[in-house]
Design a protein around this nucleic acid. Structure first.
Lengths: 344, 344
DNA sequence: TTGTAGGCGTTATCAG
DNA sequence: CTGATAACGCCTACAA
């Protein structure tokens, strides 16, 4: 019984108008049925819903956001998708967002601040209702721009109460300091470090400072620490490890800026025939899955990925819907004492 | 010299109108400057560009896509972001897209087909110019919907010339068959398998069939293979490995549906005090970074992640811009012979 | 080369 | 509770 259908036109997605005509009501009523169902009487509502279903109608997003000046979209820019550093947190972020009716748009900047800036503008132009950014190191002009555009921004993976935007994160510096103090107490005094690039990356910078804090507090010379900075990938970690072990006095421990680098260092050690932790201890940071997959399992700092993601989503949604300043929140990062470090 | 500025209004992002007024031209001219610069004379173009810069103008995305019926946005739905299975390919996809002026929207379905369906509708409603999907197993009604909406779709991570959508990928079945034949030639005849869930997942299903193909071709009974199906995560891989080793005759090799499971199996072996590959061989699939980080390094099937991503982007953009059917393309996946398999 | 004006699909205000 | 109708910001024939 398909012929004789009253389809208005050949093609093109159905619009509000089509639904209104089919249900014999005005477009306003259809719109209400979708957005404020309780403002419509039951009988008409049913008629409209039937029409919607029979036409296979889906609201046009662009039109909707233009009229409502809301997109129910939140943008997130992460430094990388290549490894899973941000994946778990982002997953939780997105799940919580969805619970509130928001959609997440993700893009990755490949740790390049110019790319990040461009992506911020793109997301804003797309009408993102709010933005999640990683770390607070970026051109102040960007914060100005965002403020002018009145786009709420939340920073994660770091914590700084005085920054231009509220943050949900942990204390990179204190965490790294705690880890370092622990290994110093275990007897390590020859300390080397492989860090991510610290420019435009407060997390990396703070972790270096944390190591120095611990050294200074324990009678070691913080200036003697000369971190090698490398990209966050396994290969780079391995190469940096070679360099460290081949030049000058060998350290008893190599602290790494994150787990990916640490895993690289472990591979490097293995390739050099060094065993971990007997010949050299190694630590990471983040506690991503890979940390428990290598052997020996990696001693590292556990970052509360999911909690951070969930709280960030809640806070950002709150900022958007209540039009209020966000409030920063400091989460705990705890040391995971595993097998890649031994006493000396 | 900031006071006395001629800002029209207190606030609100500047619009085309504002720019036009500032540059003393019509809105049409401003629009052209942005979209078809060569249609505008040099002097006016400069005036307009100056106005754009001084006002900090960014085109409003919703308005633009509503008027142009194009969004320059492409949606991709991947099964998971939690591990890096799809990350490298997606990164390449996005880089190539960017080169063509498109923005990528990613969402993850958590391997749930209902979630995927909802996300497809969301992306379409948002006006995605095209879609990238992983694998071809899904409700035919979805393909109908997409066809009706005239949204170009490309499938990746698999290859099937007869499917409802063109695909850029590799042959999961043949690859797994090749791997299996290889280990059979090395003497393995007691074969076990840990697979991902094969329902609604053609990749997983084809990999199982590939194993059976090889068995049948080499005088082994394909029906004797009884794959355990588990979620794609390390823990699940380890548990499945326990089950396999504890019940019935021990296999000499455990073929895994992907690297994540394989790494789980390796952990399981380690926890049982079994050494790989001396006591049991293990293989993976995908060749993600983790495969070379575990020890022994994992024998696996290398998937051409980046190539697949790049080609998929090119093809999809072509489909969109030339309004043509896409053409499928079969890529090579090659066996990476590493240390987790030994002859028996 | 540039300007005019209609329309894209919704939402929201204001009457009825 | 429901219906007109004016925005929303931009693109694109069509005209000049």
């Amino acid at each position: 019984m398909n012929f004789g259908s009253s389809m208005t036109d050949i093609d093109a997605p159905p619009t509000l108008d089509d639904v209104a005509r089919e249900a014999r009501v005005s477009t306003a009523t259809v719109s209400r049925c979708i957005n404020e169902p309780k403002m419509v009487s039951a009988p008409t509502r049913e008629r409209v819903q039937a029409a919607i279903k029979s036409l296979g109608y889906t609201p046009n997003f662009a039109a909707r956001s233009m009229a409502a000046k809301r997109t129910f979209t939140i943008g997130a820019i992460i430094p990388t998708m290549e490894n899973s550093i941000f994946a778990r947190g982002l997953q939780a972020f997105q799940e919580e967002l969805q619970r509130h009716g928001y959609t997440l748009l993700v893009s990755s900047s490949a740790y390049r601040s110019d790319a990040e800036e461009e992506q911020i503008r793109t997301l804003v132009a797309r009408g993102a209702d709010g933005l999640l950014l990683i770390g607070y190191d970026r051109d102040p002009a960007i914060y100005d721009y965002l403020a002018r555009q009145r786009v709420p921004v939340l920073v994660a993976w770091t914590f700084d109460d005085n920054a231009r935007a509220p943050s949900i994160g942990f204390d990179n510096r204190a965490s790294m300091r705690a880890l370092t103090e622990k290994v110093i107490k275990m007897g390590h005094r020859q300390i080397a470090m492989i860090s991510g690039f610290s420019q435009q990356n407060d997390r990396a910078r703070m972790r270096i400072l944390g190591v120095r804090d611990a050294m200074a507090a324990n009678g070691l010379d913080p200036a003697s620490l000369d971190p090698i900075e490398v990209p966050y990938d396994v290969q780079a970690g391995a190469e940096a490890f070679f360099r460290i072990m081949e030049q000058g006095p060998r350290p008893s421990i190599v602290l790494c800026g994150n787990d990916v680098i640490a895993v690289g260092a472990m591979r490097g050690a293995q390739q050099m025939g060094l065993s971990v932790p007997e010949d050299v201890s190694i630590t990471g940071f983040d506690d991503i899955e890979i940390a428990r997959v290598v052997s020996p399992e990696l001693t590292t700092v556990h970052v509360p990925h999911r909690q951070m993601g969930t709280l960030a989503a809640k806070e950002l949604v709150g900022m958007i819907e209540d039009k209020r300043q966000g409030v920063s929140r400091l989460l705990d990062a705890k040391i995971m004492d595993r097998a890649s470090v031994s006493s000396v």
